[in-house]
Computed example of a mutant assay.
Amino acid sequence: MSERKNRSEKQEVKDTSKEKKLEVVAGILLCDNKILCAQRPKGKYDYISYKFEFPGGKVEAGETAKEALCRELMEELAVSVREEKLKLYDTVKHRYPDFEVTIYCFLCPVKCIDIQLMEHESAVWVNRHELGQLDWVEADLPVISKLMEDASIFEGL
């Protein structure tokens, strides 16, 4: 009996060596003391579907993080951003049930323009104190907390 129990206990241990690991970039778009928050569409994983995030995506082979973010913002929002305007704000590692993600979050000053939602369900511009009112993906929560406390993010833009 105890041998059988031990065998089943071993089967319950999750093998994390095969877990998918992603490197992604996120743009914290800043304009007139507001921050752009984009709502994800329905996706493969319910735990991130319809949650808010900072726009961005995967870093492709041969790309720098800044190059990836410029490409992703053009693809997702039709927003053109110059690499030299991007400033690394935070790096977050987070483990979801099905994958692990490292997110490089950049402050991204932009002119207030109309964005085109090509991949997101919706988007809103909010002040930093309103960030906590939205339903965010878990990986972004440490950045949300930091932004809500950081009055300097709009300085020098």
Rank of each mutant, 00 (worst) to 15 (best):
4 R>C: 06
5 K>M: 13
5 K>H: 10
6 N>D: 13
7 R>F: 14
8 S>C: 05
9 E>A: 12
9 E>R: 15
10 K>H: 04
12 E>K: 13
12 E>I: 02
13 V>W: 00
16 T>Q: 04
18 K>F: 07
18 K>M: 10
21 K>T: 10
21 K>N: 13
24 V>K: 11
29 L>E: 05
30 L>G: 01
32 D>Q: 09
34 K>S: 03
35 I>C: 05
36 L>A: 13
38 A>P: 06
38 A>E: 09
39 Q>R: 15
39 Q>F: 02
40 R>C: 07
40 R>V: 02
41 P>T: 06
42 K>L: 13
46 D>P: 07
49 S>L: 09
51 K>Y: 02
52 F>C: 05
52 F>M: 10
54 F>T: 03
54 F>I: 02
56 G>Y: 00
57 G>R: 04
57 G>T: 07
57 G>F: 07
57 G>C: 08
58 K>C: 05
61 A>N: 08
63 E>D: 10
66 K>H: 00
67 E>R: 02
73 L>I: 05
74 M>W: 15
75 E>P: 01
77 L>M: 11
78 A>E: 13
78 A>F: 04
80 S>R: 11
81 V>I: 15
82 R>K: 11
82 R>V: 02
83 E>R: 12
83 E>M: 13
85 K>Y: 02
86 L>F: 07
86 L>Y: 03
87 K>H: 02
88 L>N: 06
90 D>P: 06
91 T>D: 01
92 V>A: 12
93 K>I: 12
93 K>R: 13
94 H>E: 04
94 H>T: 02
98 D>R: 05
98 D>F: 08
101 V>I: 14
103 I>K: 10
103 I>L: 10
107 L>H: 01
108 C>I: 02
109 P>T: 05
113 I>C: 15
115 I>H: 08
117 L>H: 05
117 L>N: 12
117 L>W: 06
121 E>D: 14
123 A>P: 08
126 V>L: 15
129 H>M: 14
131 L>D: 04
132 G>D: 06
133 Q>C: 04
134 L>S: 02
134 L>F: 10
135 D>K: 10
135 D>G: 00
135 D>W: 09
136 W>I: 04
138 E>T: 07
140 D>Y: 11
140 D>F: 13
140 D>T: 01
140 D>G: 01
141 L>M: 15
142 P>I: 08
143 V>R: 06
144 I>E: 05
144 I>G: 04
145 S>F: 03
147 L>V: 07
147 L>R: 08
147 L>C: 08
150 D>I: 08
151 A>R: 13
152 S>K: 14
152 S>E: 14
154 F>M: 05
155 E>D: 14
156 G>D: 07
